[in-house]
Design a protein around this nucleic acid. Structure first.
Length: 746
DNA sequence: TTAACTGGAAAA
DNA sequence: TTTCCAGTTAAC
């Protein structure tokens, strides 16, 4: 290795930065050593100043690199021009990762483009080095990331951090496999049951921008249907991208894609042979994640299925984007700028003229809005087909008699539910959906029903196990001498019964039937069940058993469940959430779709008020109608998706500063600010992306909501970006979090 | 990190 | 008015 950095041409990493010698040694207090180091540093400095580095000339062609610099400040969210030294001319390609000096700091950046001239009037700095010539930022991805940043009032750097996985040099060095040949057009399969289904597939193959919202038939093999749509797109020579909420859905789609794309090619690990598809998910290691992502970027693999982060996967010639179950809150990215998978995929389809498919057992108001505006067409099965496929749904209302059988009574089962389960257990497994996990996840005052809160930190009290103590789910303490914060009573009662307690009670009610539980284990949930690290079962045998599951964790039973009991519908619908109805119906449909059709004896018992709209929609199996109604209601209330809103959270002064800049935005209505409501969850320990001290400690957080007509959404986002930029430029220390169309708008 | 810029005070 | 300097701002 050369010893004199000054002898190296620009941009060649010498691995021997200034100060490396001094840093190499152990810290010592010896004054002689300190003095010697000081002199060395001084000498080096003198040399640097008196004998300037020989600088290589700029690149002969396109000597300017327009660089997206990875800095967090929103007022610096624009390209900066750098001079490309000749030795880097060939590697500093558009899309390459580089290092540049930015206001003295060495920072990461990505070359957006090369150019012949710069608009910048001052003197240009030079690229320090090219990290890798691999073009990780394709033009399409750059355009998408910019649009996403603008849509959610964020910065390009934030979006790029979500969109491009960390580099892994080993994966980059491996040779690219040849792309698989396009598969033949698939048979329509289950799509024939949907009006316009085969035509939709044909349009995908033909290269049209075929956009649809579809509700899957109950009991349908939806992964196979999605795979068929992907195959149809590939047959037309274009790529496809499927995003699902979680790893369990991903495994099903992965298997279906393998089958649909004649999985004879390649192996499961994605390393050898031409492959048609691969999966991307957060739980791959960094190396594997980057390896697969590169295979997608390089066009080696044309079909991708993945969880949330895959929404940005740089699929070449994208011809179809698919989202399954867009109402699942896992599709909402929790990191700034908080984009939503559905919206990002629609944006991509729109930018590229690609097809789009929103599919689910349920339908969101947003899905209904895409239909209402004509952006997408409905793909629905005829009523008769739905009736033939759906289970019978019966409602055990408020007045439902509790079963008199003592065992069932202790499980608080209405007579109807008890009899249904007992009967169905003769024919197969019975699914029991319980909205809350844990044992007794919600305690309240015996006297006034006020939620029981920790005396120490105000967190909610729960009981984790049978005969266990009440503990705080935030700080873990077991309060001594608890008394109600509202009425000072000293005893509590169980307000909500969790999945584990329900399983325990059902075990007593049906002593001869095996009980299986499926649900994500959480803190305070006690020992994790033996099956799998998360406690979620993918499947259960077709044999009689009671399967207790939390929403979203329902295992699939081959041949379908004989019955399902949907417990605690009241709790689901009583939540003070604007989406409570939509969410309740989504969860019920998700469970009910796993039950055998009525013709095969399948029954669903839902414990809820039969007069409620979502309950009726479940009985009629009419998700599209419910979504349309929900959309109309949101329009009436001037809420998204009929309007666009932004929530602004932070210190009172910070929020005020943002609001003050919004004057110019047409139709903007400001609601609040009001004290930030403390949700029934642990407060975010680091709520604002600020470094250094913040005034959060003294100032309580407030929240304001700004609402505009949909047409003025871009103007609102622009104004919010500008306002954020102004604060950033002033180095405001108190962070303000801006979220556009937040999912939890209460 | 640091060069350029700003504005205010001292010098003329 | 000019010059100097310290604090501020932008950042290629």
């Amino acid at each position: 290795m050369p010893q004199d950095p000054a002898a190296l041409p620009d941009g060649v990493p010498d691995g021997f930065p200034d100060g490396a010698c001094a840093r190499g040694g152990r810290a010592t207090g010896d004054p002689a050593v300190v003095e010697r180091r000081r002199q060395l540093a001084l000498a080096r400095e003198t040399v640097r100043r008196s004998r300037p580095r020989p600088v290589s000339p700029p690149a002969a062609v396109d000597p300017i690199a327009r660089v997206a610099v990875d800095v967090p400040h929103s007022h610096l969210d624009r390209p900066f021009d750098y001079l490309v030294p000749e030795p880097l001319a060939a590697t500093a390609v558009a899309g390459a990762r580089v290092r540049v000096r930015f206001s003295g700091q060495l920072v990461d950046g990505i070359v957006l483009e090369r150019a012949a001239v710069s608009e910048h009037t001052g003197v240009l700095a030079r690229l320090v080095k090219v990290v890798s010539a691999e073009p990780v930022l394709t033009p399409d991805l750059a355009r998408l990331a910019r649009a996403v940043a603008d849509r959610w009032a964020g910065t390009l750097a934030d979006v790029l951090r979500l969109a491009i996985p960390p580099r892994h040099a080993g994966a980059e060095a491996e040779p690219a496999a040849p792309p698989a040949p396009d598969p033949p057009a698939p048979a329509p399969g289950a799509w024939t049951a949907y009006d316009g289904g085969p035509a939709y597939l044909a349009a995908l193959t033909a290269g049209a921008a075929a956009r649809a919202v579809t509700t899957a038939l109950p009991g349908s093999n939806w992964p196979a249907m999605l795979a068929t749509a992907v195959a149809a797109t590939l047959a037309g020579g274009r790529g496809a991208l499927v995003v699902v909420p979680d790893g369990r859905d991903l495994a099903r789609v992965d298997a279906a894609l393998g089958a649909a794309l004649s999985g004879a090619h390649g192996t499961a690990d994605g390393r050898q042979g031409p492959r048609h598809h691969l999966t991307l998910s957060a739980d791959l290691g960094p190396g594997e994640r980057y390896r697969r992502w590169l295979a997608v970027r390089r066009g080696t693999v044309r079909a991708v299925a993945g969880t949330r982060a895959a929404m940005f996967a740089p699929v070449a010639d994208l011809g179809l984007v698919v989202i399954w179950d867009d109402g699942d809150d896992l599709h909402a990215e929790p990191r700034a700028p908080y984009p939503h998978v559905r919206e990002v995929l629609c944006l991509r389809a729109h930018q590229l003229g690609a097809g789009a498919l929103l599919a689910g057992t349920a339908m969101t108001a947003e899905g209904a809005a895409l239909l209402a505006t004509g952006w997408a067409r409905p793909l629905a099965a005829p009523r008769a087909a739905i009736r033939a496929a759906a289970p019978r749904v019966v409602v055990a209302g408020d007045d439902a008699e509790l079963e008199r059988d003592p065992a069932a009574a202790s499980a608080r089962l209405p007579s109807l539910a008890w009899r249904t389960a007992r009967e169905a257990l003769l024919h197969g497994p019975v699914l029991v959906q319980v909205p809350r996990r844990g044992y007794l996840p919600g305690l309240s005052c015996q006297q006034c029903r006020h939620p029981a809160r920790c005396l120490h930190c105000g967190g909610p009290l729960t009981v984790a196990a049978a005969r266990g103590p009440a503990t705080c789910s935030w700080c873990g303490r077991t309060p001594q001498d608890w008394r109600c914060s509202a009425c000072a009573a000293t005893t509590w009662r169980a307000q909500v019964v969790g999945a584990r307690r329900t399983a325990e009670e059902l075990g007593r009610a049906f002593p001869s039937v095996p009980i299986r539980t499926s649900g994500r284990a959480g803190p305070g949930d006690g020992p994790v069940p033996a099956h799998g690290p998360t406690g979620v079962l993918a499947t259960v045998p077709a044999t009689p058993a009671l399967v207790v599951a939390t929403p979203g964790a329902e295992p699939v039973a081959p041949g379908g469940y004989a019955a399902a009991l949907l417990l605690d519908g009241w709790a689901l619908l009583a939540r003070p959430d604007l989406r409570a109805a939509e969410e309740a119906l989504r969860r019920w449909l998700g469970a009910a779709a796993l039950v055998r059709s009525a013709t095969r004896g399948g029954v669903v018992v839902v414990l809820a008020d039969p007069a409620l709209v979502p309950v009726q929609a479940l009985v009629r199996w009419d998700p599209a109608g419910h979504a349309a109604r929900e959309l109309a209601e949101r329009a009436q209330l001037a809420l998204p998706p009929a309007t666009r809103v932004a929530s602004i959270t932070g210190s009172p002064t910070g929020v005020r500063e943002i609001l003050d800049v919004l004057d110019g935005v047409p139709t903007a209505a400001v609601l609040g600010p009001v004290p930030d409501r403390v949700p029934d969850s642990r407060p975010d320990p680091r709520p604002h992306p600020t470094n250094g001290t913040s005034s959060q400690a003294d100032e309580p957080s407030v929240r304001a909501v700004v609402r505009v007509d949909r047409a003025h959404g871009p103007a609102l986002a622009r104004a919010l970006q500008a306002a954020q930029g102004l604060r950033d430029a002033r180095k405001a220390t108190d962070g303000v979090r801006i979220r556009v169309d937040p999912p939890d708008l209460g």
